[in-house]
């Protein structure tokens, strides 16, 4: 399709990609949400996926997160072909996702959210909750990340937007995920709060994770990303190393202005 447009895309690292998608297509009935998309993530790299509404960003990350199954195409992790059939499998493969808006259960307290889906239990019977361990590990992780919350026992609904987003990101950290996906992590956050979340993303990279970020905010993208992938109408129309591009060029790719 537009392969010829990928000028100057020098390989970032000689390393093997931790995750590689080849020729991914996703059709919802007659709608072609993704058409023959190639996408790779390298170790300790932050990749931003940008594009207009309906460009296929969410569909792409949902395929990686195991929510959607691709209509066609292959997925490789560390060079080996894998199938990601459910969020549970994605998690087992070391893929963690922070979803937009619905990242936390509002009516539950902080530790319950932190350990959602993998509650620690006492003893050999996998039945009884180890509440003490939940609280301790939550405190540890929050301290390590420098996330400050008023109280652990408050319902999450009483936390501010920034505190919630920090918590949503923080809760995926202790689980040793190699690939972290974030859908609009700074949407609806103030300047200061966004800064904190961006710092958290950089911290994840420092700790050896690869991060895939969807964002509409060019400044945030250029703040953290190493590489930027542009989708338009379900097709990958460009891929740029951050240092070799400008926000202007990316915006042009997003809207397709150069084609005119």
């Amino acid at each position: 399709m537009n392969e010829e447009r990928q000028k100057d895309l020098t390989p970032i690292q000689n390393a093997q990609p931790v995750l590689e998608l080849k020729g991914i297509c996703k059709y919802f009935g007659g709608i072609h949400a993704l058409e023959n998309v190639d996408f790779a993530v390298f170790p300790e790299e932050i990749v931003a996926i940008v594009g207009d509404n309906g460009a296929g960003k969410s569909t792409l990350i949902k395929i990686i997160a195991g929510v959607h199954a691709p209509t066609a195409g292959e997925i490789y992790m560390q060079g080996k072909p894998v199938e990601i059939a459910s969020p549970i499998q994605a998690r087992e493969l070391g893929i963690e996702t922070v979803y937009q808006e619905l990242a936390l259960i509002e009516t539950r307290d902080v530790p319950s959210n932190f350990f959602l889906g993998r509650e620690p239990t006492h003893g050999k019977l996998d039945i009884f909750i180890d509440r003490k361990r939940m609280v301790e590990e939550t405190v540890n992780t929050l301290n390590t990340l420098g996330i400050k919350l008023p109280s652990l026992s408050t319902m999450v609904r009483y936390l501010s937007g920034g505190q919630r987003q920090s918590l949503a990101i923080g809760r995926i950290m202790p689980w040793g995920g190699k690939i972290i996906i974030m859908d609009e992590p700074t949407a609806a956050l103030g300047v200061k709060e966004s800064r904190k979340v961006l710092d958290l993303i950089l911290k994840l990279k420092e700790q050896g994770c690869s991060v895939i970020v969807i964002s509409h905010n060019m400044r945030h993208v250029f703040n953290v990303a190493d590489r930027i992938v542009v989708l338009r109408g379900g097709i990958k129309v460009g891929e740029r190393i951050k240092k070799q591009t400008t926000p202007d060029e990316i915006v042009k790719l997003i809207v397709g202005a150069e084609m005119l």
Partner: peptide
């Protein structure tokens, strides 16, 4: 664990699913 997952599912079913 069962009970806590029940409450979690009641609070946000979609997220419970996405959390594995």
């Amino acid at each position: 664990k069962y009970g806590r997952r029940l409450v979690a599912m009641g609070g946000n079913e979609q997220l419970a699913y996405l959390s594995g």
